[in-house]
Design a protein around this nucleic acid. Structure first.
Lengths: 137, 137
DNA sequence: ATATCTGCAAAGGATTTGCACGAGT
DNA sequence: ACTCGTGCAAATCCTTTGCAGATAT
């Protein structure tokens, strides 16, 4: 059987262009607004579906830990995000700047123009129960 | 004027007891179910309001980065959380085990019975724009 | 009395989904 | 033809809110 062939529709193309044209890590809503400037009849559902598709293909990053709304990032290189606790703005930080920033809590980080005040670290893994199911099943 | 005097209602008391009686970092919904066993007529709104109140008083922790629903933790000592990517279960990790776990990605961490497969680090701060507003205003 | 708190139900915001139509191969 | 994608609107999920009645000091 032939492999499924995703299509590069105008919507999909413009959504990706819009995302690649900004460094602001926009929400779906903000992407919607930007895309509508070029494609007035696009629907929000299409935005969500395409952002999801692009993410599933590894073409964009989905940032779901930066507030109440998801944000999206066309830059998939490993890097960290800094979130402003006042206005919610999201900035980038080169990966190798992390340890520097963590040690400098409450100091101004010259590399990202944010004064770092805190951080959040969370681990992912597989719990013992799920591990057992894997090995026994 | 007298300081406001929050009351220790039965609802509030039981919610806190229930939360202190588990290490499962329950969602509001799960707290609701547990509380209803002792207080069948409690409402979900009351659960949310009290969890919020307890959090605002620094009595419990609110974990909003562990999936789509908020989770709550009566243990406010600094410690990390490990989230199972299969079933969503959340475990604890002593703070000083963090560096160990990060170095052991994909290895089994004996301290928390999770096999750590990844992590997420995010920074918080104040952006240049908001800093300017503070210093100039 | 009065401020705090409750249960109920409705509202809210973000995201997902069902469906019939449209477009590419 | 057939599959994939779209617009629209409704549905869903989690959380918050308005309100009238209840409770404690």
């Amino acid at each position: 059987m032939p492999t499924p062939s995703p299509r590069l529709t105008p919507q999909r193309k413009i959504i990706l262009e819009v995302l690649r044209g900004t460094r602001s890590h926009p929400t779906a809503d903000e992407v919607y607004d930007m895309v509508r400037e070029r494609l007035p009849n696009v629907s929000l559902g299409t935005i969500y579906r395409n952002l999801d598709f692009l993410h599933s293909q590894g073409i964009i990053r989905k940032l779901d830990k930066l507030g109440s709304q998801m944000r999206f990032d066309a830059c998939i290189d490993p890097h960290l995000h800094v979130c402003c606790i006042e206005c919610g703005k999201v900035g980038d930080l080169p990966a190798d700047a992390a340890s520097v920033s963590l040690r400098r809590d409450a100091g101004m980080d010259t590399q990202c123009a944010f004064r770092i005040t805190g951080h959040w670290l969370e681990l992912y893994g597989i719990c013992a129960d799920c591990l057992t199911e894997h090995t026994s099943g």
